[in-house]
Design a protein around this nucleic acid. Structure first.
Lengths: 356, 356
DNA sequence: CTGAAAGCGCTTACAG
DNA sequence: CTGAAAGCGCTTACAG
């Protein structure tokens, strides 16, 4: 804008002060500090000793130039990105949301970042998790398969770090944290029996044979408990639920009521189902626990806060998260203390509250 | 273990069948398909046309060798990782959890993965988000600052793609989605006034002057509504809450009741506070809405499901997430349609339910 | 449509 | 303790 008269011609050829913003590299930092990029790397990584004077000069240059490490380049060189992947069926289900957020907390505490993936219980998406992009961008995977099952053991074996969360023992060649779902169903039902209930319904089993969900195992436990009490398994008392959500629980309870079946106890596959079911029951004038005692599974935060407070089988999702992250990081670091692939059973316990 | 007698000496020097598992590279795939890595890259990226026969040969080799792209290497070359970062104060707060999960959904739909970060409203951690590792590992950032405020505008400006979610307009050089928190407080309070309440309390303002939270703006709206109705602002009706959680709401309600103040309406800074407060009120025999009408903010899922269903000021977190992801991706792609940094106000609306 | 080569920004043996 | 150089596995102008 200013006339060129007052400036030497050459002035127009010097670079503008606002250059194309080439990112600052370690070499730039080194040049400013009078060393090479190698020394900068040693200072920043702490892998090799560096003299205090050199360190100070480097750090000053880092600050002055606003240097930020190119994590992708480091990742290519070292094979580590500092990222973990968590893949669960659906984050809309409270239990998985709480589990995933617990993993984020625990990983963050140990200095790792986390990416979240949802499989929607879809086989193709579960396969994509195992072989996909994010798998290689992150250093390890915590994965709850839903559509993949025991028949897919070859797929679930991996030379990359992985911890499986499972509704049933999947195979022995990877770390896995397994729920005792039969035990959960049996103990939940036994709790209702102990409260004097005899006509106990269940909401939850999934009729999709392709899904190895917790539902079928919990149903088995429910049947075992009834059998141990000398009670028959009545199909009219069992209602399926494809989606284990609040809405699914409300709909299933409506279905139970509409069928006219007489019940005095209700075991729901998880807390979300149970809370939706309680809501529907009360809307129809059914008292909980007076007319029907209800118990869920998971002990989500909402369970303790609902009115009436929901009895449940507590699963320590924070503990599962901590264990899973610990095992995964041990694998990634090739810790000497890491004992190799193992199967751990996740603990559970019945929590008695007002709903039963 | 087996005696070497039966084997030729040379046998011990041939490589074992289980080699050190060098990862398969594009060059390996090319060698198997009779082309170079460049052609493999062209096939896999789709960036350049490749003859059908060559493509088929490459894809066959990819399958046979079980090739998985090294995403880190591609990221170093292209400057893209396919990863977005979402940073919010705390995932334990329902609104942020729902917002973050909505971002995951929307990003996934568009083919991006998401990493989640929590700042805990801590200034150091917010600065780390802006300058940290994950910033450079991901292609863009959706960030709700809490400790950083208008005074930090220089820090919030960036040459890297960013979308700010804000409780108050922060600065004009970045995309930002801003809540009209004064309006939210005013309309929530006006709703209670319209329901005939005159002694309206508020739970929420944060007394930490370092935090530019929504609380102070919503408090201002609350005062405006009272003033417009000709009512005085009574300090004894306002209770602070440092953490906007269910527990925080229950504790604040206890505090209100213990103070002996007479109230007939209650505006809570968010739904989590409100649900905790309702629980505490009812436990002390206070009827909602008979004795005290209650309204929250956010319209989290629990709001509609609680008993009584909670009135609230709905914020469309799914819409916020979709808009934020859309703006961020447009920045990353340098879309021609991208209009440059802009400020959008997030819509809200009062939802009347049973609690008022 | 394909090959040979350069280069993204780091880390790390190899010398000194 | 530091320099010069190789190489991680891709993508992409440059030739043909």
């Amino acid at each position: 804008m200013s006339p060129r008269g007052g400036l030497p011609e050459v002035g127009f050829d010097v670079p503008m002060t606002t250059e194309p913003r080439r990112p600052v590299t370690m070499a730039d930092v080194g040049a400013a500090a009078g060393v090479t990029n190698r020394t900068v790397s040693n200072v920043l990584s702490g892998n090799k000793p560096v003299s205090p004077a050199t360190r100070a000069a480097v750090m000053a240059a880092v600050r002055e130039l606003g240097y930020q490490m190119n994590v992708t380049a480091r990742g290519l060189r070292t094979g580590r990105t500092g990222l973990l992947t968590v893949a669960v069926p659906a984050l809309r289900i409270d239990y998985f949301a709480e589990l995933a957020l617990a993993v984020v907390d625990e990983a963050e505490r140990l200095g790792w970042a986390v990416t979240l993936q949802q499989t929607q219980s879809d086989r193709e998406r579960e396969l994509a998790i195992l072989g996909g992009h994010d798998r290689l961008l992150s250093d390890g995977l915590i994965f709850q398969p839903h559509a993949l099952g025991p028949a897919d053991r070859d797929l679930l074996v991996s030379d990359q770090p992985v911890v499986l969360l499972a509704d049933h023992e999947l195979q022995a060649d990877a770390d896995q944290l397994v729920l005792d779902n039969v035990g959960i169903g049996r103990e939940a039902t036994a709790h209702l029996l102990a409260r004097g209930r005899r006509r106990i319904a269940m909401i939850g089993p999934n009729h999709d044979p392709g899904l190895s969900t917790a539902g079928s195992y919990r149903l088995e436990g429910y049947r075992q408990a009834l059998a141990e009490a000398g009670l028959p398994a009545r199909p009219d008392l069992v209602v399926g639920a494809t989606r284990w959500t609040w809405d699914g629980g409300a709909a299933a309870a409506e279905e139970l009521l509409a069928s006219g079946v007489d019940l005095d106890g209700l075991f729901c596959g998880n807390d979300s189902l149970a809370l939706g079911a309680v809501h529907a029951l009360r809307r129809h004038g059914v008292d909980v626990p007076g007319d029907v005692a209800v118990i869920g599974v998971d002990d989500t935060r909402d369970a303790a806060r609902s009115d009436p407070a929901l009895s449940t089988v507590a699963i320590d999702s924070a503990g599962v998260a901590a264990t899973a992250v610990g095992l995964l990081v041990a694998q990634i670091r090739r810790d000497a203390a890491y004992a190799g692939p193992q199967t751990q059973t996740i603990a559970h316990r019945v929590v008695h509250r007002a709903s039963s």
